[in-house]
Design a protein around this nucleic acid. Structure first.
Lengths: 144, 144
DNA sequence: ATTTAATTTGCAACATTGTTGCAAATTTAT
DNA sequence: ATAAATTTGCAACAATGTTGCAAATTAAAT
């Protein structure tokens, strides 16, 4: 994971690559993503940071990160949306998850299973698939 | 699909089987589900009905239907949640979708593809799967 | 068919979540 | 160091979801 200094460096490059100003809020939100083991909900950001962020800024920051392909959304059956960092293969105009998501019913954590490919789905005739979202729920490694 | 009379009959039985009172609101919400080709969002109910429902009643009615296994939720990456009727194999205590969902990017409609089975997912060691949600997005039959 | 008991509904009030405009502050470019 | 561009925080608002409670409706009992 690297020292705090190194992480800050990496975040800086990431933001500059995406042609975004390097601001404190953006840096701290990306830090939270990197520190966290799983996906984050919107409400997490207002809590997780020592000093709390402005709600509006968080909304705008997450939207910006989505636009730039830095993070992706994970669908849920409740009202919340969860966000996780994208791997390097994502970019502003080519933004696909090639992995599935796992939600643990015990700890509530949602994680990206990078090693697990999205399955091929054979749709009925006449349907064209652009994207496949898979969310598995169950019990995770740590909760077993 | 049957006459309006027959539908009302069927809805009555469905409610009684689930040990729910047969009320006007419940009947009309189930009618909307039966008439509709796809999944419904919460906001649809307040619009779709000629005379509008009370918001609170809709929330409570949908929750009741979920509890009884009459409808199921479909996950989305936006804040909304969509609901669709369950087939007969669902019940109060055994409530699984054995099908996948398709969201059309053109018409915005979400439908259940009953014929298309949920794929087997091979999780990494240590993970136990209880449920698998698959939502495919793309272009549907009618919009092609 | 009435009456009673249980359930459901609608309203008010509130809590949470998400959005927009704009001035002040910060960051980047010169 | 200064100017230009971007980002932030605040206020105000809109939309969405929740809770308690009295009135209305439905189901059950006589």
């Amino acid at each position: 994971m690297g020292t705090k200094q190194q992480i800050t460096e990496r975040i800086g490059s990431l933001l500059r690559e995406s042609k975004l100003s390097v601001t404190e809020t953006r840096t701290r939100i990306l830090e939270l993503f990197m520190k966290s083991s799983g996906a984050l909900e919107h409400s997490d950001f207002e809590k997780l940071a020592g000093k709390s962020f402005d709600r509006v800024t968080v909304y705008r920051t997450l939207q910006t990160f989505l636009d730039k392909g830095i993070i992706h959304k994970i669908p849920t059956t409740d009202t919340s949306v969860r966000y996780a960092l994208c791997k390097s293969e994502c970019s502003e105009h080519d933004h696909h998850d090639h992995h599935i998501h796992f939600k643990c019913e015990e700890c509530g954590n949602t994680i990206c299973l990078e090693e697990t490919d999205v399955p091929q789905i054979h749709l009925p005739k006449g349907y064209a698939a652009h994207n496949v979202e898979v969310v598995v729920s169950g019990v995770c490694k740590s909760c077993k």
